[in-house]
Structure formats: structure tokens, C-alpha cells
Nucleic acid binder design. Structure first.
Lengths: 210, 210
DNA sequence: TCATGTGAAGACATTCACAGCA
DNA sequence: TGCTGTGAATGTCTTCACATGA
């Protein structure tokens, strides 16, 4: 099996999300053009993405919704449990914790860490705050494989190093620096400042073109 | 001039950031391979990106740092002032406000909005909170062109519509839905849940390949 | 000699166009 | 008839390979 691209997986996750909503509402079938307009891509793109799934649609009717959901859920491994930890309880860390505490039943934040002793040994949003020192121990005992980094940029690399040593295989990094990691560790960079600056650039741009 | 791609602009912004740090430290020249390793791309990629700038490097020496910064700053329009507003003062909105209040001297959040009357007519992180009703008036008077949406998903589209009617040309959308906007409005989608789910997928993936 | 600048090749992603099926 | 599935064409982005210049 050829490995799926990041974009492919992102779109599949969105299709899954939409299908979940739709199954609660009505209908036993779903068309590629429905998924397409919900996610903002072309119907051909949808069908191409679905080629990697073990499912086939029926012309004029679409894809059988229930089977579709079962298949896409297992394909995206959303039936497996993944433990997530969060490091750095500043404003952003707290916001993510309270906003995204339970992303899916199978994917939740099981522990958080901060370097400030004032903050530790407490519970925030139903989640225990440990001191950074105990990261290796807690990560191993919780069997966490994914981590969210919301520490200041100057500590992001050392945090990543510690996490990886403790067994973390996927990192969502909110610090605006490039992390150096072994190639078996996946890093998703979320750079909010960059997003704002980029938007400012393109917003300006469309002003000028008039 | 052919229009630059999003990726191109993202990388240029990162080069600019790195060059700013470097000029404070030392050196009058900067190599493409320095920029490359700082940002995590190949040197060829850097040189390709810099082709759109009106600057040329000197073999064996690199690019003259000061001129480079001047040129890239003006190319990215980072010498122009842009007013940003934020809509939705939940956890995430507050975090962004306090974390990114001043992104650059020329780019700052000048007003925030919330629909909850309890929250309005106050100042948070040095920024006035207005009621959503007054969005058109305030946006026009502040001459804002960029907006950050951190309202719940079910209100994101209507918020976007209002913003656009008030003159907003660029939106950073944290709600997990696709916004429908006129084509002269730029939308940057920041979907944190999706990022976490994607990372969980690829983290799992590398587990399996062993 | 070593880094830049760039045509050409390659890799990757998207769209087109249409065959095939219910 | 009209929606799926997919080969082929197109478009976009990245890397290669090398001529050029200080």
C-alpha cells in the first residue's frame, strides 16, 4: 500500500466528520458531490481520495452511508485509542486544554505538564498538571504517543527531545521554530503568528489589485 | 508579476524572521544554506523563493543582510500597517489576544467582539471588547482589513458574512467549517482539532511500520 | 573554489474526459 | 440517465545539475 499524503488524510478526516453529522440526520447514501461541497473540493477529488478505501459507490445513489463511515473510521484508525499529553500551560495551552479536552472519544488529553511549580499538582479542566521533570515517567505510564507543545519558542526543542526520548511519536508544535526530530517522529507545525501575517499579506494583496 | 503562492509567502516570512534575528547578532551577509537550515528547506528552494525579490547574492559571500532585510520586508508589505480584529472571546480568543496582541509593530489587534453582553464594554489585555452588534461601525472606524474568527462553528459563517460586509479582506478562521466567501477575500483555515487528529494518524502509522 | 541563479527534470496533486454500470 | 471509477492530461511545486561569476 502506497502511503497516503498529509493532504489526503486531512480531507478524509473532514469527509468522516461530515458523514457522522449526516448519519445522525437522515439518508442512507451520500454522494461524492455532497462531500465535495461540504469540504470545499471537487467531486473528482473526493472520489480519488476514496480510492484508497475499501468501498465502492453505486452510480445514481452514491456511497452507502453506514458502510462508508465504518470503513473510513477504521482506515483512519479512529477506532484505536490514542493518548495525548500537553506541555506548557500558558494562555494557549489552557485554551487548547479546555477547548479540545475531548476531541473524540478515542482521542483525549490525559496529562499536562508545566515547568512552573506554582501550577503543578493541580487539576485544570479535569486534567492533572505535572511538573516537567516527571514527563518521562508519566508519559510511559499513560502510554501516550502524541504530544502538544505550547511552551515558549526557546524551550520547544528541548521539550521535544524529552518527549521523544519518552516515546512520543507525533508532535503538534505551536512554537514558531522548526523542530529537529528523528524521521520516525511526525511533526505538525501550527504557527498562528505566521497564519496572521500570511493573511495580512494576501488581504493587502487583494486591495491592491483593484 | 506572477502572483506568489501561499507556500512561497510562508517561507519568505520565515526567512525574514530569521534574518531579523541574525542582524541583531552579527554578520553582514547571509547564505542560502543558513536560511535553508533555519527554516527546514533545501538551499535551492531558498534561492528559488528569493528569485521574486529584487536582490542578488554574491557567490562565496551570500546575500548582503541589511539590503536583504529591507527588500524582503517591503516585498512582504511588512512596512505597511494592518489593523486586525478578533471575534469571539472564548478560551481560544482570549489566548490569542494575550499571546499575539502585538505580532509586529505594524500588525496588531485593535478591537475584539463578543456576543455575550456580560463580556462587553470591558478591556481585556489592553483591548476593548465591543458587542457583536457594533462590528460594522467599529471595523469601519478602525479601518481594519483582517479578522480572526474564534466563535463556535455554528456562528462562524454568519460572522464571516458580517465581517466581509464591513470591509474585511482577510480572515483567519479557527472554526472547523469551510467558510463561503467572495473570491477577493482570503481565508486561512486553522483547524486545531484536525491537526491533532492528523498527527494521531501519522504517529500511529510510524508505530505500525516497525 | 564555492555559492548563486536557473533551465530542465522529476515528483506530486488536481482536473479533465469518458467508459461503465445501475 | 447521471454518478462512479480511473487513465490521461494538466498544473504546481521541488530537486537536480550545471553554467556563471567574484
Amino acid at each position: 500500500m502506497k502511503k497516503a499524503s498529509e493532504k489526503n488524510i486531512e480531507r478524509l478526516l473532514k469527509y468522516m466528520e461530515f458523514a457522522k453529522e449526516k448519519i445522525n440526520a437522515d439518508g442512507h447514501f451520500i454522494f461524492s458531490h455532497e462531500l465535495a461541497s461540504a469540504v470545499g473540493v471537487s467531486p473528482e477529488q473526493v472520489r480519488r481520495d476514496l480510492m484508497s478505501l475499501d468501498i465502492s459507490g453505486i452510480p445514481q445513489k452514491g456511497y452507502p452511508l453506514k458502510e462508508f463511515l465504518t470503513e473510513i473510521t477504521s482506515h483512519l484508525k479512529c477506532d484505536k485509542v490514542t493518548q495525548v499529553v500537553l506541555v506548557g500551560l500558558g494562555h494557549l495551552g489552557k485554551a487548547i486544554l479546555s477547548h479540545f479536552m475531548k476531541i473524540r472519544p478515542q482521542l483525549s488529553i490525559v496529562a499536562t505538564f508545566d515547568i512552573d511549580p506554582e501550577k503543578t499538582k493541580r487539576v485544570y479542566s479535569g486534567c492533572m498538571i505535572f511538573h516537567t521533570n516527571s514527563m518521562p515517567k508519566v508519559i510511559k505510564s499513560k502510554k501516550a504517543t502524541v504530544a502538544i507543545i505550547t511552551v515558549p519558542a526557546e524551550h520547544a526543542q528541548e521539550t521535544a527531545d524529552l518527549l521523544i526520548k519518552a516515546g512520543i511519536k507525533g508532535i503538534i508544535n505551536f512554537a514558531p521554530i522548526k523542530l529537529n526530530v528523528p524521521e520516525d517522529v511526525f511533526v505538525e507545525q501550527v504557527d498562528i503568528t505566521l497564519s496572521i501575517e500570511k493573511t495580512a499579506y494576501f488581504a493587502e494583496d487583494s486591495n491592491k489589485e483593484k
